[in-house]
Amino acid sequence: MGPDPANQTGRDPALGSPRERLAALRVRLAGPGGQAAPRPVLPLGLEAIDAHLPGGGLALGPPHEIAPMEPADMVAALGFALALCAARLARTQGAALIAAAPNQPLPHGHGLAGLGLDPARLLLLEAGGDAEVFRALEAALHARALPVLVGLLADGLPLKPGRRLQLAAEGGADGDAPPLLLILRPAEAGLPNGAATRWRIASAPAARDRFGTLDKPRWRARLERCRNGRGGDWLVEWDHAAHRLRLPEPLARDAAAAGRSRA
């Protein structure tokens, strides 16, 4: 028989709300040294989302899974992944590697400008299958030469390769930050794996500029699963000039509507 939780709380009145108890538990789990070194993260620049992520951003190293809400949203998911990729590249040197399984959509060089990504900083690898993608990503993780790795998978991330990727990310302990590892997979329900977060991306009507033309891309991003964090659902907008995600400003449209109604 395990100890009765009610009794435990009774014995230790210092621990109040469940949230505080969780925080205390995390400190205890982290070991005697406390948080040894905070894991490097990529902050998304959006407090609303960063607050849901452990460490205040996407952890560098462990895989992050990005899936489209439905199959037709694959390009939106790719756009979201490349936007994160651009956000990371804007803060560091080096290039991003995109390892793609066959028949996965590869970015068009001229279309990358819309995301604020320099085509010269992208390396492509056309792998023969998911297994080759995993091997390439693992080699790149070990090499520590690239700050961003993106894998486009045909099937999904099974448990074992996910674990291997995570181990490879933890491998190099020589001070340099591990790369941001993004795994793009099809819409089908994913298996449990070692991914740190799982995002579901759907396209959303783009922002309009003053003249009513299509401007910044918007996506509906759902944080389905997040280890040591909370899920969430946001409508985000990509600012390709500032290389950061933004929440759409509801005021702008309201103001316009107000202006119209006044006129």
Binding site: L123, L125, E132, R135, A136
Partner: peptide
């Protein structure tokens, strides 16, 4: 390892 060259995008 994979027998595939690394590619880049060109205009």
């Amino acid at each position: 390892r994979l027998g595939r060259p690394l590619l880049r995008l060109g205009a």
